[in-house]
């Protein structure tokens, strides 16, 4: 996994609650058997005026000029600012891959759906929970000044505004450690293979019907 380094990035405001993973990446693109290439179809239904299908030349499609990602001032943003319950719905990790492939490194919201939150860490995308009033303020500041950018420091667990205001966020120790070092979970878990085998041996005695 890619290491998460301290970054400063332009903010894209996604001003609606309950943005679901079907909206982040519509189902027709889930037919892909790859992990990459989802960036051009991120938020597909909202982003383009014509319907999209896999295999199309997406560069030739008509963009919806009203959609936030298409507005010149937000293009190339790396931090998505969102409302509550971001990433709800389907467990598709393609939603994280699409954000990542587009170039989003951080999503800030007052709350996230559990599976999306969890999936994010696996691809090095950092989901940050900040209080609702702070998120509100960040939205206002983003709307107010073009090119608004935030600095995210995972080591220090802070989000810093252009005026120097720092907001602290929580992150599990273990996740932080994996993200900062770019560790692969599977490799870490396999270091405990003996413990897994010992568990299985014990469990097979207690609940033998599970090991038939």
């Amino acid at each position: 996994m890619r290491k998460f380094e301290t970054m400063t990035g332009k903010v894209v405001p996604m001003d609606r609650p309950n943005v679901d993973t079907d909206a982040i990446i519509p189902k027709q693109y889930l037919k892909s058997i790859k992990r990459t290439g989802f960036g051009v179809t991120l938020f597909d239904d909202w982003r383009y005026l014509d319907p999209g299908e896999p295999g199309m030349d997406h560069g030739k499609r008509r963009e919806n000029p009203d959609f936030v990602l298409n507005q010149p001032r937000y293009r190339g943003g790396q931090i998505l600012l969102a409302r509550k319950n971001f990433g709800c719905g389907s467990s598709r990790e393609h939603a994280v891959w699409a954000l990542d492939d587009y170039g989003i490194r951080v999503v800030i919201a007052p709350s996230f759906a559990d599976i999306f939150f969890n999936n994010s860490f696996k691809s090095g995308l950092l989901p940050i929970v900040l209080p609702e009033d702070v998120v509100d303020r960040l939205f206002q500041e983003t709307f107010a000044s073009e090119g608004y950018a935030l600095t995210v420091d995972l080591e220090a667990q802070t989000v810093v505004t252009p005026s120097g205001q720092a907001y602290a966020f929580e992150v599990d120790e273990f996740r932080k450690y994996c993200l900062l070092n770019g560790f692969d979970d599977i490799g870490l878990t396999l270091r405990h293979a003996d413990e897994i085998r010992a568990y299985e041996a014990r469990r097979a005695r207690e609940a033998p019907w599970l090991f038939n």
Partner: peptide, 29 residues
Amino acid sequence: GDSHTSTHGAFGALAFGIGTSEVEHVLAT
């Protein structure tokens, strides 16, 4: 790797959806 895995909880089981990286994690470990 499907959010509606919660269905199986009807059996007094702990069942939940996971992402693809976790599908791989469970397959491997």
